[in-house]
């Protein structure tokens, strides 16, 4: 187990488990909720096949610590720097070349929800609650929440959730496809880990990473450029698989 700021890291077989470790609410004390270099070091092991992000205890994360955020906001330049670093972290998680699951139980608010949205796969427990409560405090999601939510569920529904600040339960989140799976609260740990184990078992890491890169390209590159990059990744794998057979 490695610990940094409010984040803990451990390995479970081929899966890396990142915990937001500041119970009970797992508040994120600052927008730059972990050090990117530290995360990159955790991920350095190329045998890693997937990552899971969860909260320690009953909740995923209640989001930013408003008191600390207010203090931070007194100095605009510090605030801007922190926000940019936080966004960079979200972007880093979003672009990871292994599958990442957000395993959400209990409360998942604000910056916590932004971390969950950065994960390409979201699994929640049937007692999970989701919200962007920022507008209640006269602010708004600041780590890409407006962009990620709008892309995922459409601008209309996203506006409703962000402007109202209302809390969604697990069933509502599933219906909106804000989450991909909803399971009983006592099963979520086993289900999430089991899901990633089943997904990646027998698949070599080169294949997993190539597929993930191509899927990300599909989101970020123009269509025909993404097709070209896919063919490149495909050819590279084909050559490698031929060499492996010869060995």
């Amino acid at each position: 187990m490695k610990q940094h700021k409010v984040i803990a890291w451990e390995r479970n077989g081929d899966i890396g488990v990142l915990s937001i470790d500041n119970p009970p609410g797992n508040l994120l004390e600052e927008p730059e909720f972990m050090d990117r270099k530290w995360l990159e070091e955790c991920l350095e092991d190329k045998s890693l096949k997937a990552m899971l992000i969860k909260g320690t205890g009953r909740h995923f994360s209640a989001g930013a610590d408003m008191k600390l955020l207010k203090k931070l906001a007194q100095d605009e330049s510090v605030m801007m720097k922190e926000m940019a670093a936080g966004k960079d972290l979200i972007r880093f998680i979003e672009q990871m070349d292994i599958p990442v699951v957000a395993s959400v139980s209990g409360v998942c608010f604000g910056a916590g929800l932004e971390i969950a949205l950065a994960c390409p796969i979201r699994i929640c427990s049937d007692n999970a609650l989701f919200a962007f409560p920022e507008t209640n405090y006269g602010i708004m999601p600041g780590l890409g929440g407006t962009v990620m939510l709008s892309k995922l569920i459409g601008p209309g529904k996203a506006a409703e959730i962000i402007l109202s600040g209302d809390i969604l339960n697990a069933q509502q989140a599933l219906k909106l496809r804000l989450v991909d799976y909803c399971v009983p609260a006592n099963e979520i740990s086993d289900f999430s880990l089991g899901y990633l184990e089943k997904l990646t078992s027998g698949r070599n890491t080169e294949v997993i990473r190539s597929v993930m890169r191509s899927l990300h390209n599909a989101q970020t590159l123009p269509f025909e450029k993404a097709l070209e990059e896919e063919t490149k990744l495909f050819c590279t794998l084909a050559v490698k698989s031929m060499q492996n057979e010869e060995e």
Partner: peptide, 16 residues
């Protein structure tokens, strides 16, 4: 993926 490959003619771009 079970042959150590991936889709090469648009599958991973079209499907998501």
């Amino acid at each position: 993926s079970s042959f150590g490959l991936m889709p090469g003619c648009g599958g991973s771009v079209k499907l998501p």
